Structures are given as structure tokens and as C-alpha cells.
Deep mutational scan, measured.
Amino acid sequence: MQYKLVINGKTLKGETTTKAVDAETAEKAFKQYANDNGVDGVWTYDDATKTFTVTE
């Protein structure tokens, strides 16, 4: 399945996608991506759209 990440950071904004077997695996990949880019915020997930959002 394909999952999307929407980033609403202080210095980084945008979107990225990943393919993963489940939401938990996608979340780990997205959190690593956010961490690598210095984004630390509040996470939400919408199962209907398979979209994670992180807001600083």
C-alpha cells in the first residue's frame, strides 16, 4: 500500500510518499525521515486516506 506524509514543519514543509506493508511500517519510515530532516512535532494519521501529518 502507498502512504503519504504531510510535513508542516517550522523550516520544512511538503509531502512525501512511501510504499509499506502496513501503517506501522510506514509510520516508522516517516518518523525516521522527519528525524533525519530535523522535524519534531505532533503526529496524526488518517486511515481513510492513508495519510500521516506531522506539525511542529
Rank of each mutant, 00 (worst) to 15 (best):
V21R: 12
Y33P: 00
A48R: 10
T11E: 09
E24T: 12
K31P: 00
A26V: 03
A34V: 10
G41N: 02
G9V: 15
Y3A: 00
T55P: 00
K50P: 00
G14F: 11
D22E: 04
K4V: 12
T55R: 05
T53W: 08
T18G: 04
F30E: 00
A34S: 04
Y45V: 02
T55A: 05
K28A: 11
A23P: 11
T44L: 07
F30N: 00
T51I: 06
K10L: 15
K28W: 09
L12D: 07
V54C: 07
T16E: 07
L12S: 08
Y33C: 03
N35H: 15
T11Y: 14
Y45H: 02
K13C: 10
E24V: 11
L5Y: 01
E15V: 07
D40Q: 13
D47M: 09
A20K: 03
G9S: 12
T44Y: 08
T53Y: 09
L5S: 00
T11Q: 13
I7A: 03
D36F: 09
L12N: 11
E24C: 09
G38Y: 06
I7T: 04
E27L: 14
D46S: 06
Q32R: 09
D22Y: 04
K31W: 07
K10H: 14
V54L: 14
D40Y: 12
V6M: 06
K4H: 10
K4W: 10
A23N: 06
N8T: 08
T18Y: 13
E24G: 11
K13P: 07
Y33H: 05
G9C: 10
A34L: 11
E56V: 09
K13H: 12
T25N: 09
V42A: 11
V6T: 06
W43C: 02
N8P: 03
D36M: 10
V54A: 03
M1A: 12
I7L: 09
K31E: 04
N8Q: 11
D22S: 10
V54I: 12
G38F: 08
N37I: 09
A26R: 00
D40G: 09
D46F: 04
V21N: 13
V6G: 02
A29R: 10
Y33K: 03
D46C: 06
D22I: 03
M1R: 09
N8W: 11
K31I: 09
T44H: 10
A34E: 01
I7W: 10
E27R: 12
Y33D: 02
K31F: 07
T49H: 06
K4Y: 10
N8V: 15
D47G: 08
K28M: 13
V39N: 02
E27H: 12
K31H: 10
E24Q: 14
I7G: 01
Y33R: 02
K13G: 07
T51E: 04
T49V: 06
Q2H: 09
T44G: 06
A48D: 11
Y45F: 07
G9P: 03
W43R: 01
N8S: 10
T44C: 06
L12E: 09
A34Y: 03
E27I: 08
Y3K: 00
T44S: 13
V21G: 11
W43Y: 02
A26Q: 01
T44E: 10
K4I: 13
D36Q: 10
T18D: 03
K13E: 06
T11K: 10
T17S: 11
N8L: 12
E15N: 05
A29F: 15
N35L: 15
A23I: 12
W43E: 01
K4Q: 06
T11R: 07
V42R: 07
K50E: 03
L12P: 03
E27M: 15
T17F: 13
E27P: 00
F52E: 00
E56H: 06
V54S: 01
E24N: 10
T25L: 09
V6N: 05
K4C: 06
G38K: 10
A48F: 11
T51G: 02
K28I: 13
G14Q: 15
I7E: 01
G14H: 15
D22A: 04
K50G: 05
